[in-house]
Design a protein around this nucleic acid. Structure first.
Length: 869
RNA sequence: GCCCAUGUAGUCCAACUGGUAGUAGACAGAGGACUUAAAAUCCUUACAGUGCCGGUUCGAAUCCGGCCAUGGGCACCA
């Protein structure tokens, strides 16, 4: 049905129109956001990227989701804040510095420039004047200022932590740098080592962090559950064992005091003082502790490792029975949890059972349940207490209370609320992070850097050898004088965990130029709502941040509130966690990761397909799909796709291909479909521009077309407007795009040309609905249709419920739950009429004859289910 | 190992949250039209499926229990 007009239309060339409109938006400053009391505000935020240098498809997904919302809300009349920046500190820059001899700052800033270039090609509607870069002093300086406020509030302290120590490189390793118990660079076996460390007192806020989850109805339930489990509030008994052969008592915490009579041994962490004591006269114990240390600090590794123990000469005296319980040093007990020691009840705990079986320790059943044999498998459920003189016959809860009361009365223990959450260790022995603004003085101790001397900046002339901490190794940087006594002193050489940078960036976006860390007025405008919930109105980011980043940012908000910077409790009023984009990774025999674009699939002799390197032809190992990451190179830069299809196609495709929360295995297979759709939209609009002259002030609703085709088309248009509205509000962007495709299918039917005015209205509505998803082509076509105001400054279309209303529905007739007939009935049918119609439905008759009707279930607008006896 | 999710045609996904499983929408396939031919475009169209086992219900893709597979997190990757 190509009309001459459509044939004459210019070809859709994204490479021409996309830069044109990007320039137009920039010239109009269309996305600039400043406080405006006359408009409701809307703050859309996407998680800021780590500038690896490659913008991959996961970013494209994240930022397109946010951009649809930002553009939609602008069209709805909101004053929209939509900023972007760079989480620019972190390990990869330092690794690159060691590998390529480039300075981390040079490497990082080159990466941000490259990523910003690509980001601009996508037409995301950011106000770039709000950009922050966390590795620059104008960001981390204010952060140091806030850090000192937190210190003054008592929320920062020095403590000790266990770290992965690489004895060859003399450096602390991140968990990801430990591979099979060895340092990834040096290959040396790691040692778990205790180090002085900076902490933030997040545990002060444990109760509030838990309680306030209830104030976040617009967060995904799964994220709240994960945070709740992470906080891990539990009620239990902390008590002490007297120890034979030791002058101190052994403190343990248990959530199962009811099983106290079932305790048959104790287990202590390899770093426990009693373990160290035992090691003094026992070389075997020393070896065991050293060996346990090789597991490193990662919980996963410790949990999965074979449970091992070493018996000490000490015994703990059971507080109720006086029994002597052997004390084992155990590789699965960690000093950083609770007291670093546990009572072990093998009959009713999985790990204890495995341990007891291995070392042939007694297993004493104290909770009985039918059909359970605790000698074979532990039983952790409810039951009746046995073998426990004080509490025999009780249930678990009563028994817990009784034991706690007894311990408190006799003074050997007390009931206690325990949290799984530990304080946040924020110090890093690395160069590429915000310097912790403190000075160590021999006489005055640890002294904060005076605020007027901030920022404490990183030195530029640094050697990156991979050995030790570059800041500590720098010849002059750390030497300074004490701000209190003016004596010679040294700077702290630890830098901050990069999670610190991302814990408050959403506030600094609102006032990137402010001399104070935060401009209270601006923060107040953008972060609070006269009615409704305070915080970022919609935060969007990957599910991988469900716990750490989001918990730290929540903590920071509460801490800054208590320091007087903020007036609200929670940073993010609503949260959308997009699913991961995952992809296979490809590895050469040498272990190098190859980008998917470099991979070619060829048929091998046995008929199966195998992966080969495109240029070298070398066979590649295909690894299972996982999160696209910079270390695995399993995501291509979308540059190539952009050049072939344009930004609008990519945006539309990524929205269309799956609902936002769902994980997505990357495949380009369906991208052609999105491109085809835009081409059809292009051709239709050019046809409409010539066929259907513009009648500026006639709205479709008032026009009420007379003919049937026109009326049906008008209905479809208004149903689509309604659906797109609903879908955007619910983030169902995939079905939103599908609805637009449906409308286009109707608009391109030959019959649509019989109602030119409706056809034009429909095309215009479609352009407006698609604008948030595909902003460039819709702007261009809007202009082609004769409009002079940009779409990004045009209000959202309204739908008319009268026009959208259906007048007939399909009524399904079931007999005993089985589909037997479909009837077409008027939309406003009553229940009685519907049941009557169902009983008379011809196709249902054979199922109803000689049957006695029991009841009729009516679901309005849907079905009637007739049940028989 | 522990915590949290997910599982529907050959593929990606719909299914108004317990009510017609697909004339939701696409990709791929087949056939046709147009073309000297190809690409592009348009038209027509087959196939078949709720991971497995059990339960609740008039009715289950949807709720419950168990299992399997996949993904995310596990505190120094971000």
């Amino acid at each position: 049905m190509n009309t001459p007009a459509a044939l004459q239309a210019p070809k859709y060339t994204p490479t021409q129109i996309e830069p044109k409109w990007q320039a137009a938006w920039q010239k109009a400053q269309a996305f600039k956001a400043e406080p405006d009391p006359t408009k409701p505000k809307y703050y859309v935020l996407e998680m800021l990227p780590y500038p690896s240098g490659v913008l991959h498809i996961g970013h494209v997904r994240n930022y397109t989701l946010g951009d649809v919302l930002a553009r939609y809300k602008r069209a709805k009349g909101f004053n929209v804040m939509h900023p972007m920046g760079w989480d620019a500190f972190g390990l990869p820059a330092e690794n690159a510095a060691i590998k390529n001899k480039t300075h981390p700052e040079k490497w990082t800033l080159a990466n941000t420039a490259e990523m910003k270039r690509v980001m601009n090609l996508f037409g995301w509607s950011y106000d770039w004047s709000k950009e922050i870069t966390s590795c620059l002093p104008n960001y981390y300086g204010p952060q140091q200022n806030l850090f000192i406020s937190l210190y003054e509030k008592g929320l920062v302290y020095r403590g000790e932590a266990l770290v992965n120590w690489d004895p060859v490189d003399q450096t602390v390793l991140a968990n990801e740098q430990v591979v099979d118990g060895k340092g990834w660079r040096s290959g040396a076996a790691v040692e778990r080592r205790k180090m002085p460390q900076w902490f933030m007192k997040i545990t002060n806020y444990a109760e509030e962090l838990l309680a306030d989850l209830d104030k976040l109805p617009n967060w995904p339930a799964r994220v709240k559950t994960m945070q709740e489990n992470w906080l891990g509030k539990s009620r239990g008994l902390q008590f002490s064992f007297k120890v034979e052969g030791w002058d101190k008592t052994l403190e343990v915490f248990t959530t199962r005091p009811d099983t106290l009579y079932g305790a048959t041994f104790c287990a202590i962490a390899p770093e426990h003082p009693l373990a160290l004591q035992a090691a003094q006269n026992d070389p075997q114990a020393r070896l065991f502790i050293e060996d346990a240390g090789k597991l490193g600090t990662a919980q996963e590794i410790i949990d999965k490792a074979e449970k091992k123990g070493h018996k000490t000469p000490y015994t703990a005296i059971h507080p109720l029975t006086g029994a002597k319980l052997p004390i084992y040093i155990a590789n699965f007990v960690l000093m950083t949890y609770g007291t670093g020691a546990i009572m072990s009840v093998p009959a009713h705990d999985d790990r204890d059972h495995a341990f007891a079986t291995k070392y042939k320790l007694p297993i004493v059943e104290v909770i009985h349940a039918e059909g359970q044999n605790v000698q074979q498998a532990p039983y952790v459920g409810e039951g009746t207490l046995i073998n426990s003189p004080l509490i025999n016959g009780m249930g678990v809860e009563d028994a817990k209370a009784t034991i706690i009361a007894k311990a408190e009365a006799e003074g050997w223990g007390k009931g206690l609320t325990q949290w799984r959450l530990r304080d946040w260790g924020i110090g890093r022995q690395r160069y590429w992070g915000a310097p912790i603004p403190f000075i160590h003085c021999q006489t005055c101790g640890v002294v904060p850097v005076p605020r007027e001397s901030l920022p404490v900046t990183l030195p530029q002339d640094v050697q990156f050898t991979g050995s030790g901490n570059p800041l500590a190794n720098h010849p002059t940087w750390k030497h300074t004088t004490c701000p209190k006594c003016s004596q010679k002193a040294v700077r702290e050489t630890d830098t901050m965990d990069t999670f610190t940078d991302s814990s408050w960036y959403f506030l600094r976006y609102l006032c990137p130029e402010a001399t104070e860390p935060l401009d209270k007025q601006k923060v107040q405008y953008w972060m609070t709502n006269p009615q409704g919930q305070a915080g970022v109105d919609q935060y969007i980011g990957g599910i991988e941040h469900a716990v750490l980043h989001l918990l730290y940012a929540r903590f920071f908000t509460k801490a800054l509130r208590d320091c007087g910077y903020l007036t609200f409790d929670e940073p993010f009023a609503a949260l959308l966690c997009q699913g991961m984009v995952i992809g296979n990774s490809y590895q050469t025999a040498a272990g190098e990761y190859i980008y998917p674009s470099q991979v070619e699939w060829k048929e091998a002799k046995n008929g199966e397909k195998a992966a080969y390197h495109k240029t070298t032809g070398e066979p590649l190992k295909v690894l299972p799909a996982e999160k696209i990451s910079k270390s695995k190179n399993n995501g291509d830069s979308p540059d190539d796709l952009l050049a072939r299809y344009g930004a609008d196609t990519l945006r539309l495709f990524i929205l269309f291909t799956a609902p936002p929360e769902r994980d997505l295995e990357w495949s380009e297979a369906a991208i052609e479909g999105a491109h085809r759709f835009l081409n059809r939209l292009w051709n239709l609009t050019h046809k409409v521009a010539t066929l259907c002259p513009r009648e500026a002030d006639k709205s479709l609703a008032r026009q009420s077309p007379q003919d049937d085709g026109g009326r049906l088309l008008a209905r479809k248009i208004h149903q689509t407007i309604r659906k797109v509205n609903e879908d955007i509000e619910k983030f169902q962007y995939n079905t939103m795009v599908a609805a637009c495709m449906e409308l286009l299918n109707d608009l391109t039917k030959p019959t649509a040309e019989q109602s030119p005015q409706t056809l034009r209205e429909g095309t215009e509505a479609l352009l407006r609905l698609l604008n948030p998803a595909a902003p460039h082509i819709t702007e261009e076509l809007w202009q082609q249709l004769g409009h002079t105001t940009m779409l990004c400054q045009t209000a959202w279309p309204e739908y008319n419920p009268e026009v959208a209303k259906a007048d007939e529905i399909t009524l399904v007739v079931q007999v005993n739950g089985k589909l037997r007939a479909r009837l077409t009935v008027p939309a406003e049918i009553t229940e009685a009429q519907a049941i009557q119609a169902a009983k008379l439905a011809p196709e249902a008759q054979s199922w109803l004859t000689n049957q006695t009707l029991q009841k009729a279930i009516y679901v309005p607008g849907r079905l009637v289910n007739l049940t028989t006896t």
